[in-house]
């Protein structure tokens, strides 16, 4: 298991164009990132393409990973998650019709969501539990499924602005809890 220092060193070397470090980083982290991407996209072919894009981005941007002050693994996960979500949204955008949201029937990760919720790290999990009914699920769906406000509003059957107001309130609550 690669340590934080390992990953930081590799990123530092990758920023200098070191391909051996790139290879080492890939070996140590690609299964994790592929898992995350697959979780979002639930499609292996697409996930492979996104994984390629993610590591190309890592190669090109390794020198800037410190900019936002993220830990190296969080930086990698964030790149992978965001790339997967971008891909998923482009996919959904093709029908260019809000009704398409209702037809995303292939992935109904209800039980899976619950399993994940049960095994998150305890602090996050406890704080998520303090949120109002459904709001923790909305946060997870936004992060792990890339659902938008429009999709969440449709799912929870509330106006979009209401959805946003609720979620913002829940985020503040979550932040307050996580900062305790």
């Amino acid at each position: 298991m690669a340590t934080r220092d390992d990953i930081e060193n590799w990123l530092g070397q990758i920023a200098l164009g070191d391909r051996a470090s790139f290879s080492a980083l890939y070996s140590a982290t690609s299964a994790k990132l592929f898992g995350v991407i697959l979780r979002v996209l639930d499609n292996r072919a697409e996930a492979e393409e996104v994984l390629q894009e993610v590591y190309m981005r890592i190669w090109r941007h390794a020198g800037r990973y410190r900019v936002n002050g993220l830990s190296p693994m969080t930086w990698l996960i964030t790149i992978a998650r965001n790339a997967a979500v971008d891909r998923k949204r482009r996919r959904v955008a093709i029908p260019a019709d809000m009704s398409a949201i209702d037809s995303e029937s292939d992935s109904g990760p209800g039980p899976e969501q619950r399993a994940i919720a049960a095994s998150e790290n305890a602090r996050l999990s406890d704080c998520m539990d303090e949120l109002d009914e459904g709001h923790a699920e909305a946060v997870r769906r936004a992060y792990l499924d890339g659902e938008t406000y429009a999709e969440l509003a449709s799912r929870f059957d509330v106006p979009l602005n209401t959805m946003r107001t609720w979620l913002r309130r829940s985020l503040l609550k979550l932040r307050e809890c996580l900062s305790r």
Binding site: A31, I77, I116, E120, L124
Partner: peptide, 11 residues
């Protein structure tokens, strides 16, 4: 990012 903690790695 901790939401991904228990996502199984997939090689």
């Amino acid at each position: 990012a901790r939401l991904t903690d228990r996502i199984e790695p997939v090689a």
